[in-house]
Amino acid sequence: MKQIITLKVNGELRDAAISVNKTLLEVLREDLGLTGTKKGCDHGECGACTVLVNGIPTSSCLTLAVTCQGKDIMTIESLASIDKLHPLQEAFINHGAIQCGFCTPGMLLVAKTLLDEDPHPDREKITASIAGNICRCTGYVKIIEAIEAVAAQTP
């Protein structure tokens, strides 16, 4: 059962002819060429494929693409503006919160949502918020510190 769907991704309307059994992750990576979203486990357990759907962090590997029509989808590719990194991106780079970089896109989008909802979360809240995003490289300390640093800069 193939159908043409229109997705609003990073503010642009994109058409894709897809089967209804394709996940949002597969459509983003394979049909729309947005490979910044990563497949770490394909089962919703690692957080690497997180995108924002109507502002809510969502495991794109557990989401049928067809159900995302009419919703706003944001991927890592639009976190920075054309010539300026998002403060979280700056902080992740400066605090050593990125090593292999594979969990980074999902981690950043979750962190962005956290700070959008609460600009001044305490350490415990930061930790709880990123608990669904597995990072094998960093031991999380520098990721937490990077998010704290952005929170501290925010008036």
């Binding site: 490979t35 976190l79 990194l85 991106q89 050593g96 970089g101 980074t104």
Partner: peptide
Amino acid sequence: KGLPRIDGPEKATGKAVFTVDVE
């Protein structure tokens, strides 16, 4: 010195190409 890593921007923006991204 604790200088920021040079592959940081590519990885933070989703532009970094991993093997699974090679098409």
